[in-house]
Design a protein around this nucleic acid. Structure first.
Lengths: 340, 340
DNA sequence: CTGTTAGCGCGTTCAA
DNA sequence: TTGAACGCGCTAACAG
């Protein structure tokens, strides 16, 4: 005996605007006008409240898909995360950015994971974002495909190849390097070292920071920094420290706090003392920085301000207006502790 | 003189399946069948290649919005991030999870940012995800609203209130605690301390870990751990260390590596020695752990395996099948260094 | 076997 | 305030 099961199944009924219209005794158009407060439409207070009431009673939430289909773009901003491990700073920046964008009705989502996994195509195909923010820049083809797919704006935070378009975060990163060097050079050091990260994926971040250090050295008529690639390992870092010593370096700027911690470990490993024999300054102020021996001097970025800047850039571009000015160095703060 | 400007404007033409159909000289239905390799449809090789060719030439990408509207759900899995700072471990887990889900045609996106910003409603309204993964659990109302809105599955990793549904990550976290305690208890220690984090938002994570330590102590007929809340500050941590000393504690399990680092700093601050006076074991194996003085012994989780487990849970649930078994303790690895 | 026609899903918006 | 059409892809039903 065959039974029509389907009729027995409780179908999951999404509440649609038609349901609201029915309950309120108006047309779907009216519902739309009321809920969107469409300008240029006059709706009687009475009708308005009936609609609002019905919507609330039914727990109506408009379908994002339908809206996106009609409008041509969603209210989502997609951030493509880099494939290297992100620290708490990036996390905090994303949180701030999310908050800032929310004030403009935009929802930030981040996509983790290696670009290798799937062609990025797959990703915005599934999202239809209004804008895409990426750490590294895209290829011509990728950008073209995105625009073809309806993405309004593509922002690259950094670039790898020759310059092509703005890289919104390069300048701030350079400022970070400048600040490190400036602190060291104004506290009596004359020969600097630079502790470069051992991970190739960090180059897009590391290069602008190093460039900032170089620029500051140049401006103060000092030799450029002696660069060492420092692995996150005490013994290997010790070898770098010995080389710096031999070169007369008395202070080093590290790519970030982790690398700085490695340098500190190297210093201990050599039986030397920081900052006495070698001063060290990091970047980020991660929690372990203040717990190191000696406590790490470091440089931080005002993530809330950065997020505000990025948010303004995105919102302006979606609206077709020019973006805000690049933020200044007030963003960068020195956290002075014991290591430099 | 009024001019119809609109006709002069270059409209951004999204490539649609109709365009592909036109170029290939077939109907839109055929395009759909070819591109989706719809089973039960036989299309001649010739037609097929013409369609494929046309699609490629035009750079056609189907509209996610239209598809989602038709299918009723998107291919997106939404992960709601907690409002506390996420470390690299969470980041790595998300990356792995993203990869694992991609193999099933699902795209993972994460939404950072405080739930306070916007009611979470706003978020999945903008995404229509197939599933939602959250760190803390939802209220009844939230779950109901999501289901009403078409979300297939809601997974809570941890719970705050009384048990309600599975919490996929509680057991693994308990195993972490057990492993820490087991290592300490099998290396001659008989009185343990527990370094609890100073941040209330971490409770959902900390409680299961502490429960694991307690369970292990109980099984080995030892007193439960002496709990201290340890701020990330050397001086304050030192006070905790002194209290532990007074209580006869010789080894402590820390909530994570950062707290462990604080304990280590406290030990140094007291003029004591680790592990001689106090052994310390952390969780996570963050990069600074191996660079600490002394190098930190810690416990790690196999994030790839965790991600696989989570992925399997999500995929199974979307397909209406029961989820996989909870992973065993092979997930947890001890990284033995100098501090314990 | 091959491929087409037609209508749905849902919010928005123009013309009446 | 409303009817009706639109945006775009999917798929049941159907014709050659």
């Amino acid at each position: 005996m065959v039974t029509r099961v389907s009729s027995l199944v409780t179908v999951k009924n999404r509440v649609t605007s038609a349901d609201v219209a029915r309950l309120a005794g108006v047309s779907r158009a009216t519902v739309s006008y009321v809920l969107n407060q469409t300008p240029g439409q006059t709706i009687s207070t009475d009708t308005r409240s009936r609609v609002l009431d019905a919507a609330a009673r039914l727990g109506y939430a408009p379908s994002a898909a339908a809206r996106a289909l009609r409008i041509g773009r969603s209210e989502v901003v997609l951030c493509l995360l880099p494939d290297w491990p992100i620290g708490p700073e990036v996390g905090s920046m994303l949180g701030n950015l999310s908050t800032a964008l929310a004030r403009h009705g935009l929802t930030l989502v981040a996509h983790p994971g290696n670009r290798e996994d799937r062609p990025i195509t797959e990703i915005w195909k599934a999202i239809t974002p209004a804008a895409v923010i990426a750490f590294a820049d895209f290829s011509e083809g990728e950008v073209a495909a995105m625009h073809a797919s309806g993405v309004e704006l593509v922002v690259a935070l950094f670039g790898r190849g020759p310059r092509r378009g703005r890289r919104e975060l390069e300048v701030p990163q350079q400022l970070v390097g400048r600040r490190q060097a400036a602190h060291l050079l104004t506290t009596g050091h004359t020969r600097l070292g630079y502790a470069y990260p051992d991970d190739d994926r960090l180059r897009i971040f590391a290069e602008p920071r190093l460039a900032g250090v170089r620029a500051e050295c140049q401006e103060r008529a000092t030799d450029g920094p002696a660069i060492e690639t420092v692995p996150l390992d005490a013994a290997q870092a010790a070898a770098c420290v010995r080389r710096w010593q031999a070169a007369g370096v008395t202070a080093v700027c590290a790519y970030n706090d982790e690398v700085a911690l490695a340098v500190l470990a190297g210093v201990r490993n050599c039986g030397l003392d920081a900052p006495g024999d070698l001063a060290v300054i990091g970047v980020d102020d991660i929690p372990p920085a203040r717990l190191a021996a000696p406590a790490l001097t470091t440089v931080t970025t005002d993530q809330a301000a950065m997020a505000a800047y990025l948010s303004a850039t995105v919102v302006a571009a979606i609206g077709g207006k020019p973006g805000p000015a690049v933020p200044t160095e007030t963003l960068i703060q020195l956290v002075r502790r014991e290591s430099a």
